[in-house]
Amino acid sequence: MRYLSLTLVLAFLAMPVSGQAFMTDSGTAEFESSVPLHSFVGTSEVLVGRIALPDSTVDFYLDLETLDTGNGKRDKDMKKTLDTDEHPFAEFFGKLVSPFDPDGGQQEARVVGSFSLHGVTREVEVSGTLEPTANGLQLNAAWELSLEDYDIVPPKLLIIKVDPIQQVRISALLTPESGT
């Protein structure tokens, strides 16, 4: 009887936590980079992320070798610049600090946490939108990223230097975590 009641209590505790966590492994991440007279976009469709509403945890990461700029040679150069052998992921781990109503519509969302890239971790705040849908949570966010903040030397195309400020966008539909 003691173990049964303990099991029930544990199950009760577990339900709200896992029941309100959302995941994706197929989100979209983009960066836009520019050199004089030219810009290009790198895209990945394998952004992995998880949002747990009970404790407001937000956890995202991207395998940087999945970024595709549409030019194989440039992709290889980019991976060298980012040193993806040593630091394969861009990752964020933090908290949703803005109020969120699971029954509301599209809402402004603000997260604060650690963003790691190229072996450097910095505290960042990112704003975006979060929208409950029939299939889960739709997340959209965009921010500027300074390569120099992460000890990344902007690559050069001959003597023309790539803009050290990159525009980053992510978009993902997070579905209720399986098993809930």
Partner: peptide, 10 residues
């Protein structure tokens, strides 16, 4: 709930 996910190569 608060733990990070395991990072796995794509």
């Amino acid at each position: 709930a608060a733990a990070q996910m395991d990072r796995q190569r794509a």
